[in-house]
Structure formats: C-alpha cells, structure tokens
Amino acid sequence: MNINATLLGQTIMFVMFVWFCMKYIWPPITNAMGERAKKIADGLAAGERGKNELELATKRSVEILHDAKHKAAEIIAQAESRAGQIIDEAKTGAKQESERILTGAKAEIDQEVYRAREALRDQVAALAVAGAEKILRAEVNAAKHAELLKTIQAEL
C-alpha cells in the first residue's frame, strides 16, 4: 500500500486508454448510431410521404373517374344530338327527294296530259275533217280548206 512509480504508469495507461477509446471506439459506434437514426427517420419520412402520395393518388383517381364519367356523358349527349341531326338530315333529304320525285312525276304527268291533249286534238281535228268530209263530200277539198281546218284545230 505504498505510493510509488506505479502512479505514473497508471496515469499514462489511463491517458492511453482514453485516447484509444476516443480515437477508435467512440466515433464508429456513435456514427453508426447516428446513421441508423437517420435511416429510421428517412424510412419514417418515406412512409409518411408514401401515405401522402397514396392519398393524393386516390384523390386524383377519383377526379379522373369523375372527369371520365363527365366526358362519357358529354360524348353520349353529342352522339345523341348527332344522331338526331342525322335523322333530321335524312328526313329533310327524304322529303326533298320525295318532292323532287313528285315534281318530276307531276311534270311527266303534265307532259303526258299535254301530249294526250295534242293527240286528242289531232284526232278530233281529223275526226272533224272526216265528219265534214262525210257531210260535204265533193265540195270540200282538203287542200282548199286546209287553212280553215287549221284554225278550227287551233280553236279546239
């Protein structure tokens, strides 16, 4: 139990141990702990971010769905109106066509009537001439009375 030079040796040993601990033990351990804490914090932040993103994505998907529904409705409405338009167009087209056909038919009928009337007129004139011929027989010369006959014909 004497105080001796061991004292100095122990102090030197103490300083060496502290130095070694400070240099080679403390920094790696605290660094690893700090890094792990950072990693965990990052992980938690990433999780939080992921959650937020999921929320945003859900919101966006709802919006997109809503938009799509809206657009679909619009397209259907457009299609319906277009269909109506097409039907209207077809109707008017058909009406015009039918009118055209009708007018064509009418014109043809008129023509036919005219032609029949002309034919009839000729025939009536001839009949009249034939009747007059029969009545007048010799006295009537067709060439002589041609002019007369023509006026009758025109009157008819």
Binding site: F17, I25, P28, N31, A32, E35, R36
Partner: peptide, 20 residues
C-alpha cells in the same frame, strides 16, 4: 483495460447502420 478496449473495438468494427 485491454479487455474493455478489445470488446468495444470489436463492437465498433461491427457497428453499422443496419440491425445491430
């Protein structure tokens, strides 16, 4: 002292940010 430093040096060498 060496036992202490040895054990902790070993731990320091193995310390990573992963699962300890």
């Amino acid at each position: 002292g060496v036992v202490f430093l040895f054990i902790f040096k070993k731990a320091a060498a193995a310390a990573t940010a992963g699962v300890p």
